[in-house]
Structure formats: structure tokens, C-alpha cells
Write a protein that binds this DNA or RNA. Structure first.
Lengths: 149, 149
DNA sequence: TCTGAAACTTGCATGGA
DNA sequence: TCCATGCAAGTTTCAGA
């Protein structure tokens, strides 16, 4: 993971479909050299995949919400098993603190929000925060400053 | 936005680098047809871009955290202006509720977490939840069920 | 939306630093 | 180990229908 790899990561986090030839041009390298480095980073798990970023609003999802949940005793494991089946959940984290879980969800309308909360209250106490706007979205990950290599 | 477009979105959310020829094969269409539809969805803002998904741990970030913040009077706007400059912030949302802001951050070590919190307390009261694990990451967005088109 | 041709990109093998 | 070159295979783009 030298400076060149971080430049490549920067480019691919900005546009995952950027051709290796163009990345190579910007770095003064050939495309096979870029290709090799990318493959290596994929194998090492540094790059976990490439995803199209889709706008929920444009698809008809009126709300986005962050929901925290404090699981009832014995209900955390069942919830963790359930969450992957919920198409509304875009991201879900186990966290420290009084709440156990925080998830980012997309909802079609108010009725959908209500049904979704109804589903969750079987597992724990929830707090819902409707998203007003996204200030930062998928900010690229840069090189850690403390890293010495 | 017909069913074909949703199939294309599905494919590109799973792997943004998937060739249009292969998407076309799976849908029984030619690659120019796929290309046209993708370009149209880009122009409409349905597809906002393509990003490589990078593993923070593999880059040397030891912690991930969700931080909520309740801004002091008059401090919300300055914070919103500041947040885009913070490389630690991967996502940031304005939300409803007693907290105004929730952000997902990556941190190199405990000292880094401390410095970051120190920076934030000038703007409001924070609550930090260290991420233990990510249960769901970037779950693809599907077709809204209520949508009629 | 498809076909077909041209331009471009990627993958692979070889060779050099 | 890392990179450049060259070639073959695959992909995207553009025109015309």
C-alpha cells in the first residue's frame, strides 16, 4: 500500500468505471501495471467491490431514516438474523452504548414507515430520526495520516 | 423506469464494473441498448455515480463510529460548513429529533477519536457509538413495491 | 432497439530493470 | 518484485436502419 495505490483508490472511489488506461495516464504508468495493483487490492480485501450509487428519491422512496434500537433481552440475535431479509435496510451497524443497533433505511411513504416501526418493536425499543438531507455521501477514504509505509 | 431498468440497476449495484454486454446477455438485449438506458438513468439522476467500496480496516483505520450531535444555538450552520472538510467523515445526515446531525466516521486509533471529539464539542453536544460490526453494508436499492408504472 | 464497424480497453505472456 | 511492450480477445461507441 504505497502512494500509488492510494492514488488508484482515490480514482476508483470517485468513479469505479474509470478505465485503467486513464488512471495509468494520470499516474504515468501502463494499464497492466494499474490492473495488477487493482487485482492485488481486491485479493487483499482492500477493495471490497464496486457499486452504482442510486438516488432513493428518484426511485420513489420518499423518506430516508436512521433508526436506533435497544434490543429486548434475548431479542438481539433474532433481530440480527432478521435484518438481512429487510429490503428497507441499506446499512446496519452493531454499536456500543445504550442502543445496540443503528440502521439506515429507505421508506416509500408514511404508511411504510409505520409498518416498518411496527415490525421492529417486537425486537426492542426504537428511536427514529427522519433524514432531512445528506450533508456528505460516501466520502472517499484517504490514506491514514499515522500510517508509516 | 420499467422492470428492465430495475434489473440493470440491480446488476450495477452488485458490480458497477460489470460489462454492458454481460448485462445485455442476461436480459436478452444488446449492449448498446443497455448503454442507452444507463446513460439515461445517469442523466435523470437515478444513478449518481460508481464507487469502489474500500475496507477502512485494511487501510489502517482501527475504529468506525457513529456520532450524533446536538448543535449549540447558532452552531449548526458553522458545523455544516465545516463537515465537508473533515476527512474522517464518510457520511453525514441532518436528522429530526433532539439530535441535529449524525455522522459515520473512520478513525485511525484511540487518540484520533479523542482529537475528533475535541473538535466537535465546539459545535455541540456529542454522543459517540463505536461500531462493533457492520451487519449490512450498502444493500442494493430495489424497486419500491407501491410504485405503479 | 438492433446490427455492424471502428475505437478503445482489458488480459495475458514475455522480457527488462 | 514491479513495470513496459505487444498482441489477442473483449467492450464500448457511433452510425444507419
Amino acid at each position: 500500500m504505497d502512494v500509488v495505490n492510494f492514488r488508484i483508490l482515490e480514482a476508483l472511489q470517485e468513479d469505479a468505471r474509470m478505465p485503467f488506461t486513464r488512471i495509468g495516464q494520470e499516474l504515468g504508468m501502463s494499464s497492466p501495471a494499474i490492473s495488477d495493483r487493482v487485482k492485488k487490492m481486491e485479493d487483499l480485501g482492500v477493495i471490497r467491490g464496486y457499486k452504482a450509487i442510486v438516488d432513493p428519491k428518484a426511485l420513489g422512496y420518499q423518506f430516508q431514516a436512521m433508526i436506533t434500537l435497544r434490543a429486548f433481552v434475548g431479542k438481539l440475535r433474532p433481530l440480527l438474523d432478521k435484518v438481512p431479509q429487510l429490503r428497507e435496510v441499506r446499512n446496519c451497524y452493531r454499536i456500543t452504548g445504550t442502543e445496540n443497533i443503528i440502521m439506515e433505511v429507505v421508506l416509500e411513504d408514511q404508511g411504510h414507515l409505520e409498518r416498518f416501526i411496527d415490525l421492529l418493536i417486537a425486537y426492542g425499543e426504537t428511536r427514529t430520526h427522519v433524514v432531512l438531507s445528506q450533508v456528505i455521501a460516501q466520502n472517499p477514504l484517504g490514506r491514514p495520516l499515522a500510517k508509516k509505509d
